[in-house]
Amino acid sequence: MTDLSFRAAEQQAPVVDEQRADDRASGRGAGSRRRFRIGAGEALAGAYLIAAVVAAVAPGLLSPVDPLAISPSQAFSPPSLADPAVTLLGTDESGRSILSRIIHGAGPSLLIGASATAIGLLLGAALGLFAGLSGRVVDFAVNRLLEVLFALPGLLLALFLIVIVGPGVVTTTLAVGLSTAPGYARIIRGQVLAIRRSGYIEAATVLGVSPVRRLIRHMLPNTAGPLLALGTLGLGQAIVWASALSYLGLGAVPPSPEWGAMLAAGRIYLTTAWWMSVMPGLAIVLTAMSATALGRGVQRRVRAL
């Protein structure tokens, strides 16, 4: 039986030499002590994400200004230090503080990103494990199911769901989550198959070690990498796709300061007020980058275990 895609990826899944992975992780064999040192990049990424999470949980702590307070006379103010709480990152078309809106927008934005990624990961992991651990018939069936999900790309699925249940953030999140699930599932299934083929499970059983423990012990280091890479990218991606729906007029509800909606709304003022879209865009990209940097760090350490 053949799969329609990802076949090669899963069969040559990176069941790599432990030493080699270790070397790469620690900067090409430059000493294993560097393994757990926290680099400057990771520290910055961590700080940014912590700030984002704090903003999401308690935006009032970071921003003293109401993100919905309008002031038409202050509309389109460029970034300046004149009145930092309001104008540090500029103001939008209604004179609202973009800084404050980004801080208050962290909650809804991260919620969209995290929920979509969680839906994708959970569904993907469930399907992947199920397919990998079951017999050929189930595997075949699950694979066809994944094909169906693959055949309905993210935005297409979102638009289709909008036709069924109408526009909204929930529709968007669900669609983005569903469309990322098959990618995760394929990776996990590939790993499970590779480990099953390796004979380790049988050996472990003979040795009296729990097969599940064995599976996790071998799967985690190799799956964690690609999964984290996909998941961390997916976090930013979900926000970006949600913003595409805002652009198409089918997204977040105003005046909620969701980053994607801000980016979409600011785009038409790109020539006159670039900060309106660049600032929330930076927030999204920095989130994705920080998550990726941390994800890689975790991946390195997991591999080194």
């Binding site: 990802f6 055949a151 790309p153 935005l155 638009l159 796709w241 652009y247 198409l248």
Partner: peptide, 20 residues
């Protein structure tokens, strides 16, 4: 190889992008 295997997914991505 893994990139080529991603083509199916990439195609979906491109169709989504085509809307925009």
């Amino acid at each position: 190889v893994p990139g080529v295997a991603l083509s199916g997914w990439a195609f979906g991505y491109l169709i989504s992008g085509a809307v925009v």
